[in-house]
Design a protein around this nucleic acid. Structure first.
Lengths: 328, 328
DNA sequence: CGACTACACTGATACGATTCAGTGCGGGGT
DNA sequence: ACCCCGCACTGAATCGTATCAGTGTAGTCG
């Protein structure tokens, strides 16, 4: 099948009776270029009539940079929370002419893809070697780090995640728990979220006058989780903040195996409000993050970093709600 | 910071003392162009020395097509199974010079992204309007449909998913169940997997001489699941094939609520072997799909579609294992 | 010895956008 | 009458690659 010829800006120029330069100036709203209103309208009309779409390849070749925002994600399962975040982010940035695409990465093959795409920005939820980040920055790509705080590169998510931990401990404290535990994930790939949440719990303990949380890793295995539950009990712990719902549910399963029940023997509170949280035994009390707010914050970070004039001042991150069920 | 100038094929040509044309011929292995072995080596050496990487943008502009494979995914949670599939697919295609990127889509904004990327192929796990698919094909993009069978466009995954259903019913039949149910998902976005799996169960029933399965939707809610379980019991159903582990676990939760236990009252078998399957009450019997095999099949479909000479003959899809735990 | 072919390359152009450096023209100031 | 300035545009170069259409040399054949 013969491929239809592309509609180019030259076609538009011809149709509108102007030069191709003028078309470019108009479509890009180039400042300090005075183009009369009627010419603008003629050009817009021609664009519509011909169904013109600029060639991203040509633009990228010329500018050395595309309108793509690359979202790097570690090879972790993406719960509905994560998907929601991605969707909101995609929508938010699309509104500013940026296309979000995601790359699921276990290894370090990022470099080649990055060179191929020449993205405007990279948002990294996965660990990327410091040198790669330096390469990207040197090349003009704006890098948003959501993975740990690497040497003074700010992590946009830290503040919000800190508040999540804070909300967990506030709830347990309000229920009268004085000795609490923290159920940590084993997977090192979630440190970006883990560190600040735990820090939030720690600071909350301090402010409520409680002893610091007793941190234990909870493996996703009923036996191991049972052992952790028993150990906490032995220390006098009565309530546990879990890193997320998955860990919380594993802990509840372990408790059942150990003959313990929540919240009487050990109160458990998760994070994420994943769909399965309500099927836990007992139904899981958890923190529901408002992904639209989180996404907006990330989008602003990107737009700000690209020095787009349309970056908003980040609003107050009213971005999470406590969901009380029965486990705490 | 001054952006370092790119190393181009002209630089390579100069270094190797040949023309840019020759560099292009060598690097692309253009057939019918006789280039002496020593020249080739000089060029490769120059490439290494200068650290040359071709500009994807320029290539795309010239060819009208990039080396990108776009993976469209519906806005569903991606379990570890799905992530594994994506990872294998990424690795498989990378080996052939294709970059896989994914796009999570709820709406129908695909068109703009597709025009931007001019991908070599689109693998669609999400519904894409027929007209869009036609547009893409007309433009030379190879479209792999993994979403339903739309009018004779083959769905690559159908055969494998059919076998999954078959394995579920084979197991139940081997345990002596004669009246079985099928727990269907409510989410219409998973039809691509649902339809063939159910068909596999149906055909299995027929071949084992059982009555067709009693199909019920199982909402992810304990009350609703309990009602479904009671209804099956009333029909004399003793075993249920669930669409996936998530549905199976919801069903088990419903059964607990209804005072029923698995496998005595109702045997339940899932699909996916998700990490949480082992924490179910009782631990869930399920089917583990071998994602490396599934990915290889998809990769072959793409390579074949692009008429790459290196597409392999699809091997036998020995791509799933039964994992027996306690629920069936 | 001249025609021809095969070999191993090279020159120039096209892909479609952005942008620098003008160009012509009408009007205002002196 | 002259100069200058701002307005509203335009011409041409450029980004890096792929590829068509040659080009010069050496060897073969009759």
């Amino acid at each position: 099948m013969a491929r239809a010829r592309r509609v180019t800006s030259i076609d538009v120029a011809r149709e509108a009776g102007v030069s191709q330069t003028t078309v470019s100036y108009v479509l890009n709203n180039v400042p300090h270029q005075k183009i009369s209103e009627e010419t603008r309208q003629r050009i817009y009309a021609a664009v519509d009539k011909l169904g013109y779409t600029p060639s991203a390849a040509a633009r990228t070749l010329r500018l050395g940079r595309s309108d793509i925002v690359l979202l790097l994600i570690a090879d972790l399962p993406l719960g509905s929370t994560a998907i929601e975040l991605i969707e909101h982010l995609t929508a938010d940035l699309e509104r500013h002419g940026l296309s979000v695409i995601t790359r699921i990465e276990s290894g370090r093959t990022v470099a080649s893809l990055w060179k191929d795409l020449a993205p405007a920005a990279v948002i990294s939820f996965a660990p990327v070697a410091k040198e790669h980040r330096a390469d990207m920055r040197a090349d003009g790509t704006y890098v948003v780090n959501v993975w740990g705080d690497s040497e003074g590169e700010p992590n946009v998510m830290t503040r919000g995640q800190f508040r999540i931990g804070r909300m967990q401990i506030d709830h347990l404290a309000s229920q009268g728990h004085v000795r609490v535990g923290y159920a940590a994930p084993v997977d090192p790939r979630v440190r970006a979220f883990f560190d600040p949440r735990l820090e939030g719990v720690r600071r909350g303990c301090a402010e409520h006058g409680l002893t610091p949380p007793s941190v234990r890793e909870v493996v996703l295995d009923a036996e191991a989780a049972a052992a952790a539950a028993r150990a906490w009990r032995a220390e006098g712990v009565t309530g546990v903040c879990a890193f997320n719902d998955e860990v919380a549910i594993a802990l509840l399963a372990g408790m059942r195996a150990a003959g313990l029940s929540a919240p009487a023997d050990l109160a458990v509170i998760g994070v994420d409000d994943m769909p399965m949280a309500r099927f836990a035994e007992p139904p899981l009390t958890t923190i529901n993050q408002h992904m639209d707010a989180v996404a907006a914050e990330l989008a602003d970070a990107v737009l700000g970093g690209l020095e787009r004039p349309d970056a908003r001042r980040p609003g107050p991150p009213e971005s999470a709600t406590l969901v009380i069920r029965r486990s705490a």
